[in-house]
Nucleic acid binder design. Structure first.
Length: 278
DNA sequence: GGACAGGAAGTCC
DNA sequence: GGACTTCCTGTC
């Protein structure tokens, strides 16, 4: 990987096909990346808007060096060796070989744990286009206006306090029966619970701690752990993953083989199976 | 086009 | 094991 700094741009190249904004956007981990035109994307995270462009193995981030070094390099997990996961996956069997090849551009974004908690509470018993729509409405109604680009307004993900200020609108936003789960999470965070602490806690303990939130079960806890707390060993089992394990592994998939990065393997599996059964 | 049924990154009781 | 909000999608 090669990083070149310009005045208001940072160019990253020689990524060896282990970075694709399109794959990241479509892999279902993030609902705040939109495709603008051609190869251009708008990414909202950390209370900021980032415009990025990708031309095969070259990515241009429209930000200064400081923002790249302190925010985006970490957010896109650029220092992690995804090649290792791809090689290990390829060696395992034919299905994983196809999956890692197809999804080789995936990265597990290091997103905000609070945003992940609410987003994946919303995700339960829901479909991806609708999840994206609800998250969008939630941000537009409750978040702060952080930027306007090409005539479009971009809003931050709301804080617990901001959501509580708009709790009467949750029904209109379309969260449905999940409103009580969201409200409970807001109350706990607002009264001082710090999700950041869980980044330092062992994965299994993190999951059981997260499951103490009302409306958070095993699946959502593992999503928050993987996408929001940097626990690459968290392995969310949703209907797709269970289907894959039944279909290709006779109901038993041994994740210990991928210790330390089984969550990344899970993401390749999810992304690939969805692509071939559409 | 429009109505309709089935189902959706699950969890609670 | 049934209920849960709402709406996207496929089918007729």
């Amino acid at each position: 990987m090669k990083i070149t700094y310009f005045k208001n741009e940072v160019e990253v190249s020689d990524l060896d096909r282990t970075f694709s904004l399109e794959s990241i956007r479509l892999s279902g981990q993030c609902f705040r990346i939109t495709k603008l035109e051609n190869s251009k994307y708008a990414i909202v995270a950390k209370g900021r808007l980032l415009i990025a462009e990708q031309y095969s193995d070259r990515v241009v981030f429209h930000c200064n060096q400081e923002d790249f070094d302190t925010v985006w390099e970490d957010y896109f997990d650029l220092d992690y060796d995804y090649k290792k996961c791809i090689i290990e996956g390829s060696r395992y069997d034919a299905f994983l070989k196809s999956a890692v090849h197809y999804g080789s551009g995936i990265r597990i974004l290091k997103q905000d744990p609070w945003e992940m908690l609410i987003t994946f509470i919303i995700s339960q018993q829901n479909n991806i286009p609708r999840i994206a729509g609800i998250v969008d409405k939630l941000c537009n109604r409750c978040g702060d206006l952080i930027a306007t680009y090409d005539g479009i307004n971009y809003y931050s993900f709301p804080t617990a306090e901001q959501i509580m200020d708009h709790y009467l609108e949750l029904k209109d936003i379309g969260v449905g029966f999940r409103d009580k789960y969201i409200l409970d999470a807001c109350r706990r965070i607002n009264s001082g619970y710090d999700l950041e602490v869980l980044k330092q806690v062992p994965p299994e303990q993190t999951t059981s701690e997260l499951k103490r939130f009302y409306g958070v079960g095993d699946k959502v806890a593992n999503c928050v752990s993987l996408f929001g707390l940097g626990h690459k060993d968290a392995f969310p089992r949703d209907v797709w993953i269970n289907r894959i394990i039944d279909k290709y592994y006779n109901g038993d998939f041994d994740i210990s083989r991928f210790e330390g990065f089984s969550g990344i393997i899970q993401q390749y599996m999810f992304y690939y199976e969805r692509s071939i059964t559409k």
